[in-house]
Design a protein around this nucleic acid. Structure first.
Ligand SMILES: Nc1ncnc2c1ncn2[C@@H]1O[C@H](COP(=O)(O)OP(=O)(O)OP(=O)(O)O)[C@@H](O)[C@H]1O
Length: 664
DNA sequence: ACCAATCACTTTTTT
DNA sequence: AGTGATTGGT
């Protein structure tokens, strides 16, 4: 038995060892909510609950894995079989088992954002509408997703969102219907469908519901403030017989309401679950008191919040967070490098440092400067590894060897051939009769015959490789061979024609192959790959390369959720950047943006650096003066140290004393 | 009819 | 950098 009293404080211990029944931990940042949840898992297992009867829901798959690793260490491996992951991950597992109940094949595809756009483009064209300023695919997709994740009727929601615009509601509705039809026809679901259909499975199919209700005796949810209505209903349904539902969250940190997250879920939890044990944690173990003062002062500006006390357990070092006023993007980048170098000379590792920002493109200048300075770093970019064009090309090739109804994948691969475009490929799919099975010789023959003469020599080479792959039972070991041939026979030409970093992309592809070789089952690999995010991947790489070089992380604040670093640098704190201009239009009070700022600040353990550029160089060469972000203005003067760099201050590098930098 | 090359435009956040 | 729209070429 693990002695939890030595690992947790009194309140944490009470929560971790609470008896069966609903439990709510509502507490601000860094108070050990996640840690408490980990030890609740440990406690349940040591109490004799079988691990497969426990479900742990987290915001990223990475978070689940880290938590389970910790629990595994403590329990000596007794967590095997526990279900951990995101809602989408769990929904996917449910749906693979019971797909036929909802009219899907169990090998249904999961469409990523790009697939969704392709499909939506087909809908608009297919209905004879021409994509216009008023009927963009992004728009229709965002209306569909917005309605879905808020549990609203599409027509009502769409109407309310586009009233006072010239967007044609009639057409939007037609297109949305067509999109739904096309997804089913293609045997696929998008991300939202996973949630919708998993919930439908539970509500509409008694046997499936009873099966899972009996299976899961305990449900634990981290980051509960960022769940939406579908997710909370999913949990409520699953947990309704026993109400052994433990949720953890902080309404200050709700930063996904733009996709339907609603912190009313956490606020109304005790009403939905009478008899809830509510535990509040007030001691912050992460940050120095000076950092917490800034965080608390900032979040106080939000009106609709629940008061929470938050005090640091750490001793003050009288090192206030610093606000830097810099001239431009370029100077900002140079000063960030300085801070990183100084932190490293003070004894920190590169791993201890993160640069955080509102939007991906805020990182580009810093990216360049870090490269120039030879400082190791990683960026969590907007497109994930598996979403890159060249990776998706290869995955599409593999998909068509495994799944018979893969229109999108087949279209993608064929369009790589010379002389084959969207129209040809559509016609071929029709002639094939909506199915292509690579192991059937006549299917392959037909495909070759339907291709235009220009493309045929290329494809016949690939065809041979496909045949060999089938002869090798489409085993994991044969993947390398297939991909190698595919690349050398023609794909490499495409790469070098299209991009100037063809070699890099080829390396990526073989990295993908190596990743596939770590798995046993190609079918399963392909079925789940869409759910892998780049945050998950960062962790995969860490696990595999035993000694990865320490590196600075550049990340959006959204992707930094739940993480912590000794040194945190936040850049581009100007009106229009953070808060973002679009947020300014939508919500003048910027409450969600402020919560995002709160999240950024509370990632820091020892040092917090806030950057405010004074000018911004625009696209065409124009210059715009920046206004300091309201989030900086709102911080009382005495809580921060101000450093102003004038444009011509004696060389980048001098000008202020670094003596406040100490290793703690 | 259809493909492919070219140019102009733009940048919130993600499972 | 990557997308979308337009246009010239086969
Ligand atoms: N009782 C404790 N003793 C020592 N360290 C603790 C204790 N509780 C939490 N910590 C440490 O405090 C830090 C923050 O904990 P954790 O990430 O669990 O907090 P959190 O409430 O989930 O934070 P956030 O809301 O910001 O995600 C971690 O480094 C954790 O190890």
């Amino acid at each position: 038995m693990t002695d939890l009293t030595t690992l947790l404080n009194e309140e944490q211990f009470e929560a971790a060892t609470a008896p069966d029944g609903p439990l709510l931990i509502l507490a601000a940042a860094g108070t050990g909510k996640t840690r408490t949840l980990v030890y609740r898992v440990v406690h349940l297992i040591e109490r004799g609950i079988p691990p497969e009867a426990i479900m742990l829901l987290t915001f990223t798959n990475r978070a689940a894995r880290e938590m389970l690793e910790r629990a595994e260490d403590v329990t000596g491996g007794a967590t095997r079989g526990l279900w951990g992951g995101t809602f989408h991950h769990v929904a996917n597992r449910f749906l693979r088992k019971f797909a036929s109940k909802l009219g899907f094949r169990p090998d249904f595809t999961i469409f990523d954002a790009e697939d969704q756009r392709t499909l939506m483009g087909n809908c608009i064209k297919g209905l004879g509408f021409k994509p216009s300023e008023f009927l963009k695919r992004e728009l229709v997709l965002s209306l569909i997703s917005g309605a879905t994740n808020r549990g609203l009727e599409f027509e009502d929601y769409a109407e309310s969102r586009i009233e006072d615009t010239e967007i044609p509601l009639e057409q939007v509705i037609k297109v949305a219907d067509e999109y739904a039809r096309l997804k089913i026809q293609n045997n696929g679901m998008d991300f939202d469908d996973l949630l919708v259909n998993a919930l439908r499975l539970l509500t509409e199919h008694d046997d499936a519901r009873l099966f899972y209700q009996e299976h899961f005796q305990h449900i634990l949810v981290d980051e509960y403030q960022d769940t939406n209505i579908l997710q909370s209903q999913f949990i409520d349904t699953l947990g309704s017989p026993h109400k052994n539902v433990s949720v953890v969250g902080d309404d200050f940190q709700c930063i996904y309401s733009w996709r339907g997250s609603n912190y009313d879920n956490i606020m109304s939890f005790p009403d939905r679950y009478p008899g809830t044990l509510i535990v509040k944690l007030e001691q912050n173990y992460r940050s120095l008191p000076e950092i917490l003062k800034v965080a608390n002062a900032s979040i106080k500006q939000n009106k609709k919040q629940f008061e929470k006390t938050l005090r640091s357990t750490r001793a003050s070092l009288h090192a206030k967070p610093t606000v830097y006023s810099v001239y431009s993007d370029t100077e900002q980048a140079a000063r960030v490098i300085e801070i990183i170098s100084k932190a490293v000379s003070a004894g920190y590792s590169y791993d201890d440092i993160a640069v955080l920002y509102r939007s991906h493109f805020h990182s580009s200048q810093i990216d360049r400067e870090l490269t120039k300075s030879n400082i190791p770093f990683a960026v969590t970019s907007g497109i994930g590894f598996y979403e890159q064009a060249h990776i998706k090309d290869i995955l599409a090739l593999l998909r068509i060897t495994i799944f018979p109804v893969e229109k999108l994948a087949l279209m993608r691969v064929l369009q790589l051939l010379p002389g084959v475009g969207a129209v040809t490929v559509e016609r071929i799919w029709g002639k094939l009769g909506g199915v292509f099975e690579v192991e059937k010789e006549n299917h392959r023959k037909n495909l070759l015959a339907f291709l235009p003469a220009k493309a045929r020599p290329f494809w016949s080479a690939v065809d041979v490789a496909l045949e060999e792959f089938v002869a090798n039972n489409r085993s994991i070991k044969a993947v390398n061979d297939l991909v190698d041939k595919f690349i050398n026979l023609f794909y490499i030409k495409h790469l070098s024609q299209q991009y100037d970093n063809a070699e890099e992309r080829k390396d990526d592809i073989f990295e993908l192959v190596a990743d596939i070789e770590q798995h046993y089952d190609l079918t399963e690999y392909l079925a789940n790959i869409t759910l892998k995010t780049n945050v998950d991947r960062e962790k995969d790489k860490k696990d595999q390369t035993s000694e990865e070089t320490p590196h600075v992380l550049l990340s959006t604040i959204h992707q930094a959720k739940g993480l912590e670093w000794p040194v945190v640098i936040v850049v581009w704190l100007t009106e229009g950047m953070f808060p973002s201009s679009r947020a300014l239009l939508e919500d003048l009070s910027c409450s969600e943006e402020r919560r995002l700022f709160y999240v950024a600040v509370t990632r820091a353990k020892d040092n917090l650096h806030l950057f405010v550029p004074r000018v911004r160089f625009m696209h065409g060469g124009g210059r715009m003066d920046c206004i300091q972000s309201r989030f900086i203005k709102e911080i009382p003067e005495e809580l921060v140290r101000n450093v102003e760099f004038s444009f011509n201050s004696p060389g980048f590098g001098g000008g202020y004393s670094p003596s406040y930098y100490r290793r703690f």
